[in-house]
Design a protein around this nucleic acid. Structure first.
Lengths: 229, 229
DNA sequence: CTTCTATTCAAATGATTTATTGAATAATTG
DNA sequence: CAATTATTCAATAAATCATTTGAATAGAAG
């Protein structure tokens, strides 16, 4: 694409080209839709149609964004029969996404405002650390709620977690012990589903918190993972 | 700026806004000039004029880019008298930059091609790890070369390093012991100055290598730093 | 108070990007 | 082999971005 410096004595051009390459990765991260696709892919391999459905984009549009992510070296694709499956090109991409979120969280005032406006009482919603959760799950002290769609749940989830997509939350609510603490998680530290679930549960007077981060981080931390229905 | 979802039931909009905020950080990283400014700022506080000089941009243009970086929460500014000084907003920005470089290095084929085309013999230029270097410096086994401009050197450098800007390299060469190994470093893992210095030294038959990463990483790793002339 | 300097703002232009649409490709199925 | 399906390519208009230019601001020095 960009012309490459043809001789080694042209330092300025080399420098320019090099930063341009880095910028290409940055450019891939400069669009909300692509970030959403990446967060989704952080859970594992996905087909184009799935990605289009979850992101609310057209298939063609999704495909274009995926192309850009591939050119930036962030995702890889694999063709199996009719379908093309995409996945992150490595764990360092998860690291990169985490770093991006971290900076945005800590420094972008608007993010805080957004989160605060969404969650009426922030302190009550302090996330629970992963390792602390694992201990409590073993002793059956908490109910862990996986609010992601069934397909994602099947691909891997926190051991003992119950899969309750948001639209079925109301029904499930009735069956819960009001004393039992509930911990909800979904895709990543900022996945809206978990925020939303906790907010709704608390409305009903239940003790609910978010899990720190989400499933991709859980998996990357090397904690146990359960698969299947 | 962007309209905020006013009620909690509007999930799509909240999600969209949230990713848009993350994308703003990504957008700040999507331009080569801004990345260069960030790399430069990773060494410490700098004035607008300095930044403009080193990046080769006009002052007005530099100011605009700095504005964008500030809006994304990546840099902070401080006014002292006539001048305005910019700095990174936190160490997590260095982490982010490192993650970005890492992904770009590992996955973008063009970067590798670029680096390879610049360095004729790649294997001979394998960088030396930081901790290994520290030990050897203490025993005077290597000469450490800081090829950055004098101002940057004065702001902080690896203990025992000699400041030899590239344009004075030729003169300095003659005074060197051909048996002594030389390790060169500059701003970051991809700073061209160090590549260039090593390439030139090797041309003259000297044993030269790059230091792993650059000074910002050295500093962040908590290794000792020397200041002044 | 006036002049000078460093920086920022504002407007304009040319270049990219995004999302949409419809056509093209490639592998499966009947 | 034709029909079907999933995906990608190509072309478009609307939106956004990068850079340049010249003017405006704010503090320092005379």
């Amino acid at each position: 694409m960009a012309a490459m410096s043809s001789n080694t004595s042209n330092k300025g051009s080399f420098k320019h080209d090099l930063f341009a390459q880095f910028a290409r990765v940055g450019k891939a991260l400069s669009n909300g839709n692509r970030l959403e696709l990446l967060e989704f892919l952080a859970q594992g391999e996905r087909g184009v149609d799935e990605l289009a459905r979850v992101s609310g984009l057209s298939v063609a549009n999704t495909s274009q964004h995926l192309q850009q992510l591939r050119q930036a070296g962030l995702v890889l694709s694999r063709k199996d029969g009719l379908k093309v499956y995409y996945r992150l090109s490595g764990d360092d991409v998860i690291t990169l996404l985490g770093a991006l979120r971290g900076v945005a969280e800590r420094h972008v005032a608007d993010v805080e405002r957004l989160v605060n406006s969404y969650l009426t009482v922030k302190d009550d919603l302090e996330p629970i650390p992963r390792d602390e959760l694992l201990g409590r799950v073993k002793h059956d002290l908490v109910t862990v709620l996986d609010v992601r769609p069934p397909e994602e749940y099947a691909a891997g989830h926190v051991p003992g977690a119950v899969n309750v997509p948001l639209d079925k939350l109301e029904q499930y609510l009735l069956a819960l012990d009001p004393q039992q603490e509930i911990v909800a998680y979904c895709r990543g530290p900022h996945c809206v589903l978990a925020f939303d679930a906790v907010a709704r549960l608390r409305e009903k007077g239940l003790k609910a918190r978010r899990m720190q981060d989400g499933f991709p981080e859980w998996k990357q931390a090397g904690l146990p993972v359960e698969e299947g229905e």
